[in-house]
């Protein structure tokens, strides 16, 4: 479980996050949705400590993530997997090395054990015979799957995904969504996903937080989102008049 309480973040005069509070449950897919530039990515990056927050608190299972030493933060980070928007695979490493990298850096395992774990993770995301290929030789969807394999290789308790469907066709997007859903339920991970893809919202959104201009505007689930009475959210769900008429 992750608890975010009243976090604020600004760059000069620009407030990117405004008193944002949210609760992300374990074993569920928690979505953060909102327009481009609404502060979704910043919210995730602040939760991961990639950007320091101005005020507020971030709690990972009753462990404060802000007022702790670098060493303690490192320990919590070992429990976190992250899938970046552009996959962020290391260009200089092949796929096997990419997935093996977190193991190599944090565990004291034999190479054969590490290889077994890499094979398991790549099989889990349905990728075979790609071990020796480099990221540039894979399609966008395959790169995302490698990024998911790398994110789960350490058996994380928390999985963060920044727009996992961006740049993917609807069919591949569905594959990625299904994969994230399976992994979350199978391992009981607290999964937090940033997205503005309504298909994902309807398919996998167990818990949804809608952000507008860095502020939480609405919170609910995939069932209640279509009946929500929030001007910004309704605009986000059905941006054109014809779509609004269509969705009733």
């Amino acid at each position: 479980m992750i608890r975010v309480e009243n976090i604020n973040k600004s760059f000069g005069d620009k407030h990117v996050l405004n008193n944002l509070s949210a609760h992300f449950s374990a074993g569920k897919i928690n979505l953060i949705i909102g327009k481009s530039g609404s502060g979704k990515t910043m919210a995730i990056k602040c939760m991961l400590g990639l950007h320091p927050i101005d005020s507020g608190s971030i709690i990972f299972n009753d462990r404060d993530f802000i007022n702790i030493s670098d060493r303690q933060r490192k320990e919590i980070r070992k429990e976190i997997g992250m899938v970046f928007q552009g996959s962020a695979l290391f260009d200089s490493m092949n796929i096997q090395e990419n997935v093996m990298f977190p193991l190599k850096m944090t565990k004291s395992m034999s190479v054969s054990d590490m290889k077994k774990r890499v094979d398991f993770c790549l099989n889990r995301v349905d990728l075979k015979n790609v071990h020796t290929l480099f990221p540039s030789e894979l399609s966008g969807g395959m790169q995302k799957r490698v990024a998911i394999a790398r994110a789960i290789v350490l058996n994380p308790k928390y999985l963060f995904c920044d727009e996992p469907n961006s740049g993917l066709d609807p069919v591949t997007s569905k594959v990625i969504d299904d994969l994230l859903k399976e992994i979350t339920y199978e391992y009981g991970i607290t999964t937090v996903i940033n997205t503005h893809d309504m298909n994902s919202v309807i398919e996998i959104g167990d818990s949804i937080v809608f952000i507008q201009d860095g502020k939480k505007e609405w919170e609910g689930d995939k069932k209640s989102i279509t009946t929500a009475n929030n001007k910004y959210l309704n605009e986000f769900i059905a941006p054109s008049k014809s779509l609004r008429r269509f969705s009733g």
């Binding site: 990056k45 991961l48 400590g49 990639l50 933060r73 490192k74 320990e75 980070r77 070992k78 976190i80 992250m82 970046f84 928007q85 552009g86 962020a88 695979l89 290391f90 260009d91 990298f101 977190p102 850096m105 944090t106 963060f160």
Partner: peptide
């Protein structure tokens, strides 16, 4: 610089490196 703009450095940081 390329690692920075493609978030590879962020990926390292998230891994606690």
């Amino acid at each position: 610089g390329t690692m920075r703009v493609t978030e590879q450095i962020d990926a390292l940081e998230v891994m606690g490196i």
